[in-house]
């Protein structure tokens, strides 16, 4: 699939891409199955019955892999709720980008998050050529996976969105033509704020914007990403 095609119809499923998914579907690891079971039996019912998740613009997630899903970040519920929107068979294609220093702090957490959420751990400090975050994300996308990333870099208070870091723009610059899907999450930080372990079942909402191709300098791309999420935030 070439870039022009994508730009015109970002939601259209290209033949080669769907064949690519079909080929990958054959290799189902135990880890994939555990993740699918976990989402089918725990996360999806939890989102429907406890959180009462409302979704607007779900059709934009039909975008063919790979794409880059970006969203505001205020809670551990963010990743869970976004992943819960995908059909089970697509889950293993979606890699949430996560800080290695937090999610790989010990073996238990590491195995758990890799299995259940299929995270793509990236380094925040001591960056070398080998563990360069941009390189890691790029490799995932080249392998045909989509990534989910929170450009604020960390969970905010949930009141106001933090400034976006430039990392995602770096990635987009290196991989022009990959579709960006913006999302805005409402009330997640109220339900499960930073530092809390028991969620309060406030109704939460996910608003998903249309897939888009971004071009320009890094600051321009970062601005455009912020604007895309803000636009969803302003929606009534």
């Amino acid at each position: 699939m070439n870039d022009e095609q994508r730009a015109v119809s970002p939601s259209g499923v290209s033949r080669s891409a769907s064949e690519g998914i079909a080929a990958k579907t054959m290799k189902l690891t135990l880890r994939n199955v555990v993740q699918m079971m976990f989402f089918a039996l725990a996360i999806k019912p939890f989102m429907a019955l406890f959180i009462g998740l409302r979704v607007r613009g779900r059709e934009h997630l039909r975008e063919t892999d790979p794409f880059i899903l970006i969203a505001n970040h205020s809670s551990h519920l963010d990743t869970m709720s976004l992943l819960s929107l995908f059909p089970l068979r697509r889950l293993r294609r979606i890699r949430p980008v996560a800080a290695a220093d937090y999610f790989e702090r010990n073996r238990f957490v590491s195995v758990l998050t890799k299995t259940l959420f299929n995270i793509l751990p990236i380094a925040r400090k001591n960056i070398t050529a080998e563990n360069n975050p941009i390189r890691r994300m790029r490799e995932a996308i080249e392998a045909g996976d989509s990534i989910l990333i929170f450009p604020e870099g960390t969970r905010g208070s949930g009141q106001e969105m933090g400034e976006f870091r430039s990392g995602v723009a770096h990635l987009i610059e290196k991989m022009p033509g990959v579709a960006i899907v913006p999302a805005y999450l409402v009330n997640m930080g109220r339900s499960l704020p930073k530092g809390e372990f028991i969620p309060v079942p406030f109704f939460c909402e996910i608003r998903i914007g249309a897939p888009r191709i971004l071009q320009g300098s890094r600051p321009e791309i970062t601005k455009a990403l912020e604007a895309a999420v803000h636009e969803l935030a302003e929606e009534e």
Binding site: G52, R190, V200, P201, F202, F203
Partner: peptide, 26 residues
């Protein structure tokens, strides 16, 4: 009751400090 309470509480202007009280409420 759970669903009705959820609808009501979501519309309240709760403070971050109310988190534990709300867990107790549910």
């Amino acid at each position: 009751s759970f669903w009705a309470l959820k609808e009501y509480v979501t519309l309240l202007k709760t403070r971050p400090a109310d988190h534990h009280a709300l867990v107790l409420t549910f």
